[in-house]
């Protein structure tokens, strides 16, 4: 007899509605709206530097990646030099200084997913998309990258695409996901 609660967290069905999603908002805003909203956030922060990563995120969503121009824009908004921001942008995993596809597929390659065959997931996606690790599909839809443990080890192997995690991947499931992403804007960032 199992004498404890067996808990397993899944959000297969839509989780409680989430009203404000910065991610999608900033991509939809006009540059002017975005600038105003970022300025407001910077104003609210204890120190502008606190918002550095947030601003970089927002501009990345707006521009697709952090181009030199986007970096200069961030520098202007935050009053930090482009170099100071580049020190951060080049440090973090989820800030892209090079052009990426509309969807960035981060396949977890840490030890639990590794045990559950992350390599075959990676190979499968690479084959399906016809790109290697780090590559972007010619239509600009997908970029394939590795990432470290996503914290979904209970549902390994897992991958993360634009803020949403997909677990217990199989070839079939991957096909479905890629198909979905190609066809429609997915609902707000929820784990699947």
């Amino acid at each position: 007899m199992v004498s404890c609660a067996i808990l397993k967290w899944r959000v297969d069905s839509p989780a409680p509605s989430v009203d404000a999603v910065l991610s999608d908002k900033s991509a939809q805003m006009t540059p002017k709206e975005l600038e105003e909203s970022l300025k407001e956030d910077i104003e609210k922060a204890y120190d502008p530097r606190e918002q550095a990563v947030d601003v970089l995120y927002a501009l990345q969503r707006q521009h697709g990646h952090l181009s030199d121009e986007a970096m200069r824009e961030a520098s202007r908004l935050l009053g930090m030099t482009p170099l100071e921001l580049d020190e951060l942008a080049t440090f973090y995993d989820f800030l892209y200084r090079e052009p990426v596809g509309k969807y960035v597929i981060h396949v977890c390659d840490s030890v639990v997913c590794w045990m559950h065959g992350h390599q075959s997931v990676m190979d499968y996606i690479a084959e399906r998309l016809g790109v290697g690790l780090g590559g972007t599909t010619p239509d600009g839809m997908f970029t394939l990258l590795p990432t470290c443990c996503l914290g979904y080890c209970d549902r390994a192997p897992a991958m993360l695409i634009n803020g949403r995690v997909y677990g217990e991947l199989t070839g079939e499931k991957i096909d479905r996901i890629l198909q979905e992403l190609r066809e429609e804007e997915p609902p707000l960032a929820l784990d699947r």
Binding site: P16, V18, V165
Partner: peptide
């Protein structure tokens, strides 16, 4: 909060409100 926990961040933001 880490980026792969975006769903957690959203839940927290909603509940903080």
């Amino acid at each position: 909060i880490r980026p792969s926990y975006e769903s957690s961040a959203l839940i927290l933001e909603r509940e903080l409100e």
